[in-house]
Design a protein around this nucleic acid. Structure first.
Length: 273
DNA sequence: CGGGCGGCCTGGAGGC
DNA sequence: TGCCTCCAGGCCGCCC
């Protein structure tokens, strides 16, 4: 389940090998993902040079010369990886990107929740996927003050609140649980009951949990692998996510699992108030 | 208008 | 061992 750190790690690995390379050919093997993949990808991108890779939220943005940007979202089970062979395909290999220098990249997504779209680079900020997004959690535009002001206006449980992309982007189920553990806040607390001090602690916890995960190459809990199909290592550092029934490393209470707005949340009843 | 939830998918886990 | 059910979850869009 790729979240922000997984997409960021992937971006860093891809850019060292792909920036400046020309995309020779795009082959679309299956277009019927949840959002259909446009059939004219090859027509728009073939023989164009990749001039930049960016990440916004969990979207990977590929800027090509000629002013087109490819938008890729890994959804739940999406993978993007280099491959030697251009022949052996899995049934879930939906798009093949053949770059110069025999760099073959493959987009595989068994659950087909992912997205591969194209947009004119200049029109990206106004695109409906991007125009309502909140701040990037690792940038200065996301601060304890900003979080506190937003919290005051909402009675949603803080865990659901953090997963709302209008509040902050890129914080999914794993890192929301982990950041709340780190800041000692129960996931069920109404956002408006968070104090200024707690908002500052929570903001810092979100940043540090995400940064540590990027450092470890992301979390490979189920589906995520890196550009060379290598798993991330951050799952080894998880304190509460997926650890229900086990003992908290800090206070030895039993970690609990609850459901909030249809998603599982994990917390320590001893550490989180 | 904001928040909750259903639908989209398939693989893997767990129960019988 | 095999079949069936359930669960995972990001995001959109509908509905209250």
């Amino acid at each position: 389940m790729p979240e922000l750190p997984e997409v960021e790690s992937l971006k860093r690995k891809l850019e060292t090998r792909l920036i400046g390379k020309a995309l020779r050919r795009v082959t679309l093997r299956r277009a019927d993902l949840r959002w259909p993949i446009p059939k004219n990808l090859n027509q728009k991108l073939a023989s164009r040079q990749l001039v930049g890779l960016r990440r916004r939220s969990k979207y990977l943005l590929w800027d090509f010369e000629g002013g087109q940007t490819l938008i890729v979202h890994l959804g739940m089970s999406g993978r993007l990886f280099f491959t030697e062979s251009t022949r052996l395909f899995d049934t879930h290999d939906h798009v093949l990107f053949d770059f110069d220098s025999k760099l073959h990249l493959r987009f595989r997504d068994p659950r087909r929740f992912g997205m591969v779209l194209i947009c004119v680079t200049k029109e990206l900020p106004a695109h409906k996927l991007f125009c309502h997004l909140g701040p990037e959690p690792l940038e200065n535009s996301f601060s304890g003050d900003v979080l506190f002001l937003k919290c005051k206006k909402s009675r949603s449980p803080i865990k659901s609140f953090l997963m709302n992309a209008k509040v902050v982007v890129g914080v999914g189920n794993i890192y929301a649980s982990e950041a709340l553990f780190k800041s000692g806040i129960r996931p069920s607390r109404p956002a408006c009951k968070i104090t200024q001090k707690e908002a500052e602690k929570l903001c810092a916890a979100i940043k540090s949990v995400l940064e540590q995960s990027i450092e470890a190459g992301g979390t490979s809990f189920r589906d995520y692998v890196g550009a060379n199909e290598e798993p991330g290592l951050h799952q080894l550092q998880l304190k509460v996510y997926g650890r229900d029934g086990k003992l908290c490393e800090v206070c030895h209470h039993i970690i609990k699992k609850i459901t909030q707005t249809g998603r599982s949340s994990f917390y320590c009843p001893g550490c989180q108030r």
